[in-house]
Design a protein around this nucleic acid. Structure first.
Lengths: 182, 182
DNA sequence: ACTTGACGGCTAACACCGTTAGCCGTATGG
DNA sequence: CCATACGGCTAACGGTGTTAGCCGTCAAGT
């Protein structure tokens, strides 16, 4: 009889990961918890609220994994490692990634500061340049969603695309730092 | 009594653009055409097929707009103008862009060569380097979907993010060309 | 100790969704 | 003249999110 809210989000997450987003229905979630669908509304106002809870989970997990990579590498240039971790997170949790990052973010339901925390590794990689950080984020997100949606041609060399993108941004960061100190 | 298929796709497109993706139901489409929902299945095998027709429309329109920009600019560096056109297309047709580019592409329902045609402007901007073209595409797509989903912070300077991204890729293209001739 | 009220289940139901089965009028071609 | 294909239709199925309303249990207050 642990916290029902937690039980429900756990059931939702398992359902999402094992059977995909179409299986994420209120009735299926309730079934997994052992209650009926209308009872879910005693704990969540609507389906969007349980999806928001999943977004919070996805965001927290991404933040944690990126921070782990930052800690692992030393003074190495962080970009290729960060990019690899970002892509790996998305490929390992495709449905969670999509529900977390490919729809409006339920910011009010998010733990304070979590969104910023998830973004900081990229900001640090960009030496604090917020514009570069945002375009770098867009690049990584774009690569990931295009891959998840099967949008690249079948034989496309995505490692190469990631590499040239990372190099382009690494150069931009380097040039910006030079310009700053000059 | 013009081609019912065309009538249906036109109704679907109007519905999508004016009321958003939730309004794109078989019953609503049929209502707009003046028939009942089951009759749609005399012309399309399922809802996915009419969505595929919309994807074809979205892809063709994007290709045409990018080609128009290419023709308009002369030997100027094409990237900022292409990026502007790409973004403008997405912002002007947000629902069409999403249905066209943020799900698996129904390639079999697409006119022959259209997908390649839509990608060629970016390939040409990348001087034929397919890896740069793909990462550039990911950058543009990422910027666009993050903006459409309201993922950037409220006051974010997206023009600046687009600019630094374009500059980074422009430099990569330039460097690659130098390296090729060297 | 009795009552009250909140909590968290439940069933029934509504309005919608995509889709199928099966019927029927029309219009065309052999 | 007949047959067949075309393109409408109604009825229905199983699914969706969600609401209304009922009821048992359990804790707190008087």
């Amino acid at each position: 009889m642990a916290d029902r809210v937690q039980q429900i989000t756990a059931a939702a997450r398992e359902l999402l990961e094992t059977e995909g987003p179409d299986a994420l229905s209120m009735r299926r979630i309730a079934e997994r918890v052992g209650i009926r669908a209308p009872s879910l509304y005693k704990h969540f106002p609507d389906k969007g609220a349980v999806e928001a809870a999943l977004q919070a989970q996805g965001m927290a997990q991404l933040a944690q994994e990126l921070e782990a990579i930052e800690a692992e590498i030393g003074v190495e240039p962080p970009m290729p490692a960060l990019a690899r971790a970002y892509r790996q997170h998305a490929l390992a949790n495709p449905h969670l990634y999509r529900i977390t990052h490919t729809r409006p973010l339920a910011r009010t339901a998010l733990p304070e500061g979590l969104e910023d925390r998830a973004g900081m590794p990229l900001v640090r990689a960009a030496h604090g340049d917020i514009d570069i950080a945002r375009s770098l984020w867009a690049f990584a997100h774009g690569m990931v969603v295009l891959e998840l949606d099967g949008r690249f041609p079948p034989g496309a060399d995505l490692d190469a695309a990631w590499r040239v993108g990372c190099e382009a941004f690494a150069h931009a960061i380097h040039a910006k730092s030079q310009g700053d100190t000059a």
